[in-house]
């Protein structure tokens, strides 16, 4: 004679469950109580859920088999490990911030210093060679330094792709006096980030930024080709070859392109920091 459903749906089960816990609003409660009068299935289900709760509540609290207080010696060992991690992380963050400041300083120097012409002759060859030669040894030096962190040795290899912006910075750096230190710092910070950032998470972000960088590259070459009065229309297959001999052209391109490169580098660093923070938040 009653038309109760053969089985309650999830919503009704949830209603009954909340009813047991006294978590229903007065209105919902009143409505459910009316239904309980009319629907036997609702009533029996409520009784069974209530019985389950009663059974769970009947479980006695267990006495812990021992004390779990930390042995100061043991804790110190463990906390020391924790301390190193915390220290490394703050170092990493500081490195990232330092890198941004550095990049901004470089940008200012480059765009502000219109007398960039003077150091450029020396810079030009460096520009051509540095990206190939200089970063590699720096990387090699940076990687072992960070490899000390336990369990991170394998991850250390990953930073290589992320160094792409660093060589670009070499391009931006030529007329800045502190080139070697600056670059080394940059490399360190870039290399340090992935220690915390899960490679999987960092990779796509980095890849995206790298794509941006790659997309930016033609723009980098374009002005140098244009301002190179000698062969304005010739699209040289090797941009380095074209830039190296032409001092003024290189000067122009460096000055125009430096902010873009600096911006891209800053973006990479920011992306890495965001990934680090997100990772850390997830670890909580």
């Amino acid at each position: 004679m009653n038309t109760a459903l053969p089985q309650l749906n999830d919503d009704d089960i949830e209603l009954l469950s909340a009813y047991i816990d006294n978590e229903l609003s007065a209105a919902d409660r009143a409505r459910l109580e009316v239904r309980l009068q009319a629907e036997p299935l609702l009533r029996t289900t409520l009784a069974e859920l209530q019985a389950t709760v009663t059974a769970l509540q009947s479980l006695e609290p267990l006495r812990p088999p021992r004390s779990f207080t930390l042995d100061p010696a043991d804790a110190r060992v463990r906390s020391a490990a924790g301390g190193v991690l915390v220290w490394l992380r703050s170092l990493q963050l500081a490195g990232g911030v330092a890198a941004i400041v550095l990049v901004m300083a470089l940008t200012l120097t480059l765009s502000g210093g219109d007398m960039a012409g003077a150091p450029l002759p020396a810079a030009a060859p460096q520009f051509a060679e540095a990206p190939a030669a200089a970063p590699a040894p720096t990387m090699a030096a940076a990687a072992p330094a960070t490899a000390n962190e336990p369990g991170m040795a394998a991850a250390e290899a990953v930073p290589l792709p992320t160094t792409t912006p660093a060589p670009m910075n070499l391009a931006a750096a030529p007329d800045a006096a502190p080139l070697p230190t600056a670059t080394a710092e940059m490399m360190m910070s870039v290399a340090a980030e992935p220690t915390d950032v899960a490679a999987a998470e960092a990779a796509p972000e980095m890849a995206r930024v790298q794509e941006d960088t790659a997309a930016g590259a033609p723009a980098v070459k374009a002005p140098s080709a244009d301002t190179d009065g000698v062969m304005p229309q010739v699209a040289s297959p090797d941009p380095l070859e074209q830039q190296a001999p032409s001092v003024t052209a290189t000067g122009w391109s460096v000055r125009m392109v430096a902010p873009i490169i600096a911006l891209l580098a800053a973006l990479v660093v920011i992306a890495a920091i965001i990934a680090t923070i997100r990772q850390r938040a997830r670890n909580r």
């Binding site: 999830d10 009954l16 909340a18 069974e48 859920l49 389950t52 009663t54 059974a55 009947s58």
Partner: peptide
């Protein structure tokens, strides 16, 4: 709320199958 209610329902079914009805208890 949903985890608790589903958990209660599942546990009720499991205990029933195990012939140990909470109701009897």
């Amino acid at each position: 709320k949903s985890r608790i209610s589903r958990g209660r329902l599942r546990l009720r079914e499991i205990l029933r199958q195990g012939e140990l009805l909470p109701l009897r208890y």
